[in-house]
Design a binder for these strands. Structure first.
Lengths: 245, 245
DNA sequence: CAGTGGTCTAGACCACTTC
DNA sequence: AAGTGGTCTAGACCACTGC
């Protein structure tokens, strides 16, 4: 009699299973961004494991910036609405090092059928409805960023220029408070391009001026892509920073 | 009698002290890149703490990519000479996703007096001797990267064009094997620029073509800056990738 | 089979926050 | 003082590697 081959998923530590259960609770919005989750002891009792095992699960989620630990207070669900996290994904900063206060101006917010490229990135079907937002961000009165943003129209139902204009603050805080969608991570691809006529006009630069092109896909819980950005930065007075570890 | 004010450094966990001691051993080259450090039990005995405390110290060093754990084998000092780590700091990749094989061509390697900018970044005194290297990297015969590199001439004594040309492989593996200098992390600042005549010639592009300008400072143990790079990437067929967490 | 890192537990105590 | 996360220990057992 042949010996059965080994199972594919050979081994999963307890703390990984706990981590998955906590993640599921986050995804199911059982605990909302900004609020505290049960204490380590409570979770240990709920899952019938020791505190140390819960600890290790939470440690990893905190390392991934999904949870935030605060000694003496508790463990909290990460939120883009905290001051510290407002510009967590913004890597642009002034060459001078001064504080960077970007002012928003929305140019458009329209529903359209997704192109095949957008659909693929958002894991939708080509032609599914998406919302396109155009915006310019300025610093000290100078336009610095021009970007187009795409969102699934079903997830962000009813999003309009008016709603955007009522909001003052970062987009990710907006998504979170208005649509219950918390961004967990993002991936960017960066190129240098020459400004065409449209970009030159928007960013008040000569035709052909070099710009940073930043393509971003942002993900919510469960590695679900929910936002596409196609941004151009004027980097004459500011730069993109990155730390390599 | 007045109560003495609180000490400035109020509290330092044991595992942080252990971590500092391991770091000191790395910096002192007691254990070399690629070799294994003593087992957790041995270190626990040496420092008179429990295995768990050593574990936590090593966990953090592994998270910072200074050490690499291998179950069943031991814990090893990170090295740029392993295949996996060869291009740890290279964030450029082809749009097509194919494998990126860059070919080196060194244009110059000359000693000079450091400018004040270079000196400040390398934490040297202005005028201290540095070595400047110019190189071009090509992919499929096309020049993609032109960069200037500066190193302290005292740390990299005797570095010459001949030595560079004898070497085939990444620079950081070269620094490590030839000068005992292991790079731990790096910081980059990125801008978009228009190619001037010199860059256009080197990268075989029309004048004014947009290029990615990447300024890098690389650090060895103890946050000591030891290498400056001033690189320009042609990003028409490739892009810079970044993950935001 | 011995040695390594990886997991899990139980319990003690510390540091910080809040009441 | 009570409750939270943070540190530290000791010991058991598991998974992986190499002899």
């Amino acid at each position: 009699m042949p010996i059965p081959s080994l199972p594919a998923a050979s081994f999963s530590p307890l703390y990984q299973q706990i981590k998955a259960m906590i993640l599921a609770s986050l995804q199911a919005a059982e605990w909302l961004p900004g609020s505290s989750i049960p204490s380590e002891m409570e979770l240990a009792a709920r899952y019938l494991v020791s505190q140390g095992t819960v600890r290790k699960a939470i440690d990893e989620l905190a390392a991934e910036n999904l949870l935030v630990r605060r000694q003496g207070k508790g463990t909290f669900v990460a939120t883009h609405q905290e001051d510290e996290w407002q510009y967590r994904f913004l890597r642009l900063e002034p060459d001078t090092g001064e504080k960077f206060l970007l002012v928003n101006r929305f140019l458009a917010c329209e529903q359209m059928k997704s192109t095949s490229t957008i659909a693929k990135l958002l894991k939708l079907k080509a032609g599914d409805p998406v919302i396109q937002i155009d915006r310019i961000q300025s610093f000290n009165g100078k336009p610095i960023v021009f970007e187009e943003i795409w969102l699934s129209a079903t997830r962000f139902k009813g999003l309009s220029l008016d709603k955007l204009n009522e909001w003052s603050g970062p987009m990710y805080a907006f998504y979170e408070s208005q649509y219950g969608t918390h961004m967990v991570r993002a991936e960017e691809q960066i190129k240098a391009i020459n400004a065409n006529q449209e970009l030159a006009t928007h960013l008040e630069l000569p035709l052909g001026h070099a710009l940073l092109l930043v393509d971003r896909v942002a993900f919510t819980y469960g590695n679900k892509p929910v936002e596409i950005r196609h941004a151009r930065y004027n980097t004459s007075q500011q730069h993109y920073v990155n730390k390599l570890n």
